[in-house]
Amino acid sequence: MSITLPRTPRARRLGLLAAVAALAIVPTACSSDSASTVTGKAAEEISYNDQWIKAADSGMSAAFGILTNAGDAPVNLVAASSPVSARVEIHEVVAAAGGDKTMRPKEGGIVIPAHGTITLKPGADHLMFMDLKQPLRTGAETPITLIFSDGSTTTVSAQVRDFAGGNENYSGGEHPAPAAQNPAHGG
C-alpha cells in the first residue's frame, strides 16, 4: 500500500492522521498457516478481570478474580506462577467432616467453560501463593502468569488488597504446617 501526502504542512498532518486511522481499521491479511498457529490458543480466549491478591507479610497469600472464556471450547487452567512466590497452586475449598472448610490443591486445574466464566474467590477456587519471597503490600501491583493445558500463557497484573481471610484449614502435602488453621492465607 502506498500513501501520497499533500504538500502543505497542515494537509500532510491531516492526511497522515487519516492514513494511520485507516490502517488501524483495515484487517491484517494472514496466510492460512499463520492463522492456524494463533487460532485456538487458550490464552487468547481467556481474560482475567477484577484480579487481586491478599496483602501478606510472609508465608502464603491468594489471588482472586474472574476468568472469562470468549472461545467456543472449554479452556483448562493448569498452573500459575508469580515472581513474588516460590510456587503458585490452584486450590479449592471443600466441606470437611464436621462442617469445617478445607483448602487443598485442585486436581486437574480449573476448566473455564466455552463462553463462560469462573470466579476465583475467598472460600472457593483461588490461586494460592506459597512461600512468599517478599511482602505483598496493599496498593502494590503483582504479576501473575496463567498457564493453560495447551501450553499457552498470559501474564496479568493484580492489585494487592487488604483482606482478613477465609479461615479454612489447609490439606496439602508440602505446606509447612499441613492441616493447621491459617487465617492469613486468604483462601
Rank of each mutant, 00 (worst) to 15 (best):
T39C: 05
I110S: 02
A56N: 08
A56L: 07
V20G: 04
I110C: 06
R13P: 00
Y48E: 06
G71A: 06
V88L: 05
L14W: 10
P27K: 01
L77A: 01
I53A: 02
P74K: 07
R87Y: 08
A86M: 06
A43K: 04
A70P: 01
A56Q: 11
A24C: 09
A21P: 02
W52D: 12
A43E: 03
V20L: 15
A29N: 10
S47A: 13
I66C: 05
S58H: 14
A22I: 10
A19P: 01
A86R: 14
A21K: 09
D57H: 04
M60W: 08
E45K: 15
E92T: 08
N69T: 09
L77N: 02
E45H: 11
A96F: 00
A80F: 06
V84C: 02
G99W: 02
A62M: 03
A97Y: 05
G99N: 06
A21N: 10
A22N: 07
E45G: 08
M60L: 12
M60C: 10
V94D: 09
N76Q: 14
E107T: 15
N69C: 12
A86G: 08
V75D: 01
A24I: 07
A80S: 09
T39P: 01
T28M: 08
W52H: 13
E45V: 12
V75N: 00
S31M: 04
R13Y: 13
A56V: 05
K54A: 06
E44I: 05
L67K: 08
T37R: 11
V20T: 14
A18I: 06
A56I: 06
G59Y: 11
L77R: 04
E107M: 12
T102A: 12
T37P: 02
A19N: 02
D72E: 13
I46R: 00
Q51T: 14
D72S: 15
Y48F: 15
A62P: 02
K101F: 01
A86E: 08
S34K: 09
A73W: 07
A80I: 08
A63W: 00
A18Q: 12
D57W: 03
L16P: 03
A19F: 00
A35L: 15
E89Q: 14
T28V: 14
I46C: 00
L17E: 07
M103G: 14
A96G: 08
K106C: 03
G65W: 01
S82L: 04
A62Y: 01
L14F: 10
R87S: 10
L77M: 09
